[in-house]
Every structure is written in structure tokens, then in C-alpha cells.
Design a protein around this nucleic acid. Sequence first.
DNA 1: GTAAGGATTGGC
DNA 2: CCAATCCTTACT
Length: 173
Amino acid sequence: MKRERLEHNFYIRDVLDVAPEMPGKSLVRQFDNGSLYRYTILEVEAYRGKEDLACHASKGRTNRTEVMYHAGGKIYVYLIYGMYWMLNFVTGEQDTPQAVLIRAVEGFDGPGKLTRGLQIDSSFYGEDLATSKRIWLEHATEKFDIVRTKRIGIDYAGEPWINKPWRFVGTRQ
DNA sequence: GTAAGGATTGGC
DNA sequence: CCAATCCTTACT
């Protein structure tokens, strides 16, 4: 079994090309105590550009959204409801603010539970997935089928954004 | 400076 | 159904 880290070229593509390829890939986390775990990604959502009213970049380029304007391959984390950190991977070329929200991995079903379980917080903001020593992605070793649905929890964005089928759920083939 | 609200979760 | 909890954003 080949374990190969995903490089920048994987992320520097349109988020709608990257996101459907995420389920099945391994999210690798090396903890401070040296232990290393691999988690298969099961569910993600795509947030695409300043026109997408569900994407935080639609509010403009701010301190919080800054990293989404960078070239793909970095981590975007933010706090929601005062208690949950959301884990996102920036995609696309520089100045195309996009990100993939990781909603579930095997063992942790839900974006808040996932970051709690993997001990991911604000210190991961801007981390480079191609060079980090504590978090990265590796190529998939199994084939997954993808089901597309609407994104969760973004009713405020209105039409047409609430109906975009930009949630990608993977199931083993 | 102040206020409103959220890419969620779990408990009633 | 609804509170928890605090950071980001938009202003009376």
C-alpha cells in the first residue's frame, strides 16, 4: 500500500473538482505525543468564491477570510457558535477564495466532533498541508461512491446557493 | 464601543 | 424545540 502525501497541485484546482475527490482520502494527524493516526474522509462541502453567499469570502477579504484568498493547500479554521472549530482546506488559485469544509471522517461524524476528536483549533489557521508535520492528506487506497446533496445549515444564503448540490458524501464501493 | 448572529451539538 | 458560548462583522 503506497502512502503518498498530496501536494499543492492537488489543491490548486477549482473547489468543485477537488471536493468530489476528497471522500476516501486519508486525513493524517500526528499528535504532540508522537502518535500518528489516519482517518478516512467521508463527507465534505464546497464553498466557492465571493459570489457564493454561503461562503465566508462573500463578506469580503477580512482577517478571518484572508487565507482563503491564498493559493490552495492551506488550512482555514474558524470558530462557530462559540464552541466548535470548523476545519477547511483552501483550494484554487491565488485570489479565488474557495475552501472545502471537512464534515466527517471515519470515527467522527460531524464537523464539530471531528475537530474536537483530532484536537484541531485556531493554531492550525494557515497551516500548509504539503509541508506540515502534524496534519496532511494522503491518496485514497479504496474506491468510494459519491452522493451529492445540498449543503447543511446555510439557509441564510438564499437562492440559488442553498440548492447547490455541493455536499459530497462518500460510501464504500 | 456595542450589538447581532453563526458552515453545530446535545439535552429537554 | 432551544441554549451554550465567543469571535467576527456591521454598524445606532
